[in-house]
Write a protein that binds this DNA or RNA. Sequence first.
RNA 1: GCCAGCGUAGCUCAGUGGUAGAGCAGCUGAUUCGUAAUCAGCAGGUCGUGGGUUCAAUCCCCACCGCUGGCUCCA
Length: 577
Amino acid sequence: MAELNAMRHSAAHIMAEAIQRLYPAAQFAYGPETEDGFYYDVKLPEGSITEEDLPRIEKIMREIIKGKHLFARELIPREEALKLFADQKFKVLTLNNLLKDEPVVSVYRQGGFVDLCRGPHVSNTAEIGAVKLDRIAGSYWLGDAKNEPLQRVYGLCFPTKQELDEYVHRMEEARKRDHRLTGKQLKLFSFHDEGPGFPFMLPKGRTLFNLLVAYNRANNDARGYVEIHTPAMLVEDLWKTSGHAEYYREHMYFAEVDERQFAIKPMNCPGGLLVFREELRSYRDLPMRVAEFGLVHRHELSGVLHGLFRVRAFTQDDAHIYCAPEDLRKEIVDIIDLTLETYRDFGFNEFTIYVATRPEKAIGEPEAWERATAALKEALDAKGMAYKIKEGEGAFYGPKIEFNVKDCIGRQWQLGTAQVDFFLPQRFGLEYIGADGAAHTPVMIHRAIFGSLERFLGILIEQTMGAFPAWIAPTQATVLPITDAQNEVARGVWARLKKAGVRAELDVSPERLQKKIRNAQLQKIPYMLVLGGKEAESGMVAPRLRDGRDLGAMPLEDFIAGFKRVEAARAQELWLE
RNA sequence: GCCAGCGUAGCUCAGUGGUAGAGCAGCUGAUUCGUAAUCAGCAGGUCGUGGGUUCAAUCCCCACCGCUGGCUCCA
């Protein structure tokens, strides 16, 4: 791995040399290796690098690689390096900041190019394997949007041409899983110019969505949650109390009505807090677990929108748990259990857990943040769950546990979350009367299992490629009469299925059976009930499964019974023997 | 929001400085056919929007909108 990294990092230097040949005034920032290659952040003083440049850069890189130039490491005094890189402003900045206390720095030379670099590198350029420039993206100096914008040129680099080709092929295949493609093919959801970032749920997508809600609601009920619904729009004063008006303003939509300023909710918590405060609460009422399927609107930057994964309006399977401080850990453990159970039911076994800590813009005392963060870590430790820390990535009101999963091409997305919050209860003056007769402030936990139903649906689509397990497939079965002569019987079969609670369709189009099957396959419908003359006479159907298996003729009631077993088991398999 | 690319029929895509095609889908007709595409005909687009250059723009230029990939940000 170390060698591969050195090779990729060396490829970045070679790309920089190639770019410098084409654009002698190019300024170079950082050029590290990545999981599949490398990139280099570059600034052209005039104009910019475009895709047309990539083949030219690649060609020069190949020449350099063939040239077998040695990578020579030199240690030079920092002062000397400052002179050497006098016309490379980002190198000067690095020398004067990151490396300001280093008396000696290392530089690497290969051919006609020299770069400030810690190394290591391969010994000569011919040791670079297969290289392919991938794409150009924007970036910022030191990754900060307030700094100078740069261009990031990404390259792929593998030891052999074969590995590179395999990787490219694998990525092409993975891209076919994209939920945006499947969503269009299966007519699950859509987007329109008239509402950028606002998803439209089509009948089949909405069916899936409703099934997710029903699933989650059943779990909540079993665990002593109650459910509420709070308004989409509330007066701005409320958002001042909650801190959103100050800490979350740029993500919010506002409206003025009757000379009063309103905000559309970006989160459900403030509304929920008002409900808690409606009555005098007793310690006997706690923990109070209050769920809400809340549609929130957040004005996200246009460039970050991404199918169902990143939208401007989405539904959270939200819940707020109010409890006494001593119950905190138990409640968090319960949330972790519920989350893992849910993910398992949907076939997700690979996810990463993070604990996100206090961000720069935050309300409350650092000491309370410490306690809240510790509570989250202790709960995870108690469950023996491995997790990583995301410094400064908590919500403005509290630290959080994040459950992240990967999409088809390896990007990570957050689904579930559990957030401890000492501050909003305080700001809203929440109280409960303790056993001691005195008023106490409850602790609040914000939690979501799916996170965003839309995002979860997107992930589910990518995982299944639209071939959903039978229990959640929007259309579970379709009845396929072979000729018009069976249409009437087919209609009866269809009605029977509907009555039995099967989400069924009927295809009486004047097409041949092959075509009907093909259409059903393309829609990834799990069960195709073929109905020919033989079956029509005997009250049978001949189920064909989505995976191609032909179960042969069987009485309709037998099919329904078998289907019910699969559905009840939430089985990944389509038929249980 | 930033950088680059893209935007042609419902969908997938071809194409040209002289106002556009294909396949699928749709409609009509014929076919009634046992496990992934029956045949024929018809219809369908102010080529994202608005400016500009030009005798003439879908094609060239500019702006805007949207989408894609990344950056930053996030469920």
